[in-house]
Design a protein around this nucleic acid. Structure first.
Lengths: 221, 221
DNA sequence: TTCGGGACGATTGCATGCAAAAATACCGCA
DNA sequence: TGCGGTATTTTTGCATGCAATCGTCCCGAA
């Protein structure tokens, strides 16, 4: 089969990058559940590409810890135990501890305005009870705060680890009461960020994550 | 060209993993210097494989941040500025801060014995002025302390970030005086680890890394 | 009925071919 | 000689073919 040049926006040289993002999204959005076997032929037909870029994408996702490849036996979506997720959250909290103090120092007014804007959008999503939108904005706010620390290594590592466990945190706000509390916590977080109170920001983030995970863990089990 | 089954120990299904490690070593050991253009044909001939597993390996190493691939224009070994390395070290120090306290709590006697053994080997390498051996043992000690925290996510992230900047820290002990001081610092570190003094261990590690990087940075510039 | 084994089909791993893009060499012109 | 533009070579990106391996189904024997 020949790919016509006008088919899709997949430019030559970015096929595997595009495919990687597509499969990554399928995993983090829950379409491919943990434990699912990934069949190359099925995905190849669905994404309308050949096996080569798909296999490259799978290798990349294996490196990110999203899938596991057993030689000669295919790839499966990694299944994390609650303990695994908790370990990752421990790391994320540690990374935010570094990030919070740096971000409080180094954030520009534009950074603060941006987070503030996202926060408003997120509250709107909450009021519409649009969980998916809320969830993505939530992630984006945390990443933006980390990015404000102006440490590219920190941003990269945080993004990777955050993506890895995204799916497992999603269940956290099924409980409406927890969801409302999360919104209030986020208001405090934004406030501490805007006032550049590093240590306070650090503690608020820590508490926020631990509470969020407790809720998610309870919902999962 | 057909690969004969008896050639090398490269079993089917692990070709790209083996190649990834080979190329990774070439980069971290300095054979492929930062900025070097990676030519597929050259590596393919040298490693005696086809382009497919090599290209998979390159994608993986790109994910690890060791190389950069520009579409249609090949891969180059990533060149980190002193600021980039410093950013990574900031992250590593943060990760060790989490790890130190957990390791002090959770380390088994076997963990402590193992680090103690590695420390003795490392001192021996120092006395023989065997910089390469010293350097590898040094890395291994830090990783083992982190591993003692029994947090797989932490171990993984630490190993990745550590590998990424390994090459840039190597220059640190060219100065014999700094090398001697590093050895003394390591003795204190081992002591704090063995006594399970978490906060002290954390501070010693932080000081050790910052001093080491100051020396390496001075040597590079 | 259940267990073992062998044949068949499905699936993966790797090599290779071909076309697109980039890099390089070449040539005419000023 | 220096420069711009074009032809040629090199290199990359992707599709595909073939062989090895795995999984499954079916059949016969206990």
């Amino acid at each position: 089969m020949t790919i016509h040049p006008e088919s899709e926006g997949a430019t030559r040289g970015r096929r595997s990058a595009v495919v990687t993002q597509q499969v990554r999204d399928m995993i983090t959005d829950g379409e491919l559940a943990p434990g699912t076997r990934i069949n190359e032929r099925v995905l190849v037909e669905r994404l309308n590409i050949s096996r080569t870029p798909l296999r490259e994408a799978l290798k990349i996702l294996e490196g990110e810890g999203l899938i596991a490849i057993r030689p000669n036996a295919g790839a499966t979506v990694v299944e994390l135990s609650p303990e695994d997720v908790e370990a990752s959250i421990e790391v994320l909290v540690g990374l935010e501890a570094i990030g919070a103090e740096l971000a409080a120092e180094r954030a520009t007014e534009a950074d603060i305005a941006e987070v503030s804007r996202l926060q408003a959008e997120m509250v709107a999503a909450y009021e519409e009870r649009s969980l998916m939108t809320y969830f993505h904005l939530n992630q984006e706010i945390h990443q933006k705060i980390i990015d404000a620390a102006r440490n590219p290594a920190l941003s990269r590592v945080y993004a990777g680890e955050s993506t890895r466990i995204r799916r497992y945190r999603f269940a956290g706000n099924r409980d409406l009461e927890r969801w409302a509390r999360a919104i209030r916590e986020h208001e405090q977080i934004l406030d501490a960020f805007a006032r550049r109170e590093g240590p306070l920001l650090r503690e608020l983030l820590r508490a926020h994550h631990l509470a969020g995970w407790r809720a998610a863990r309870a919902a999962i089990e």
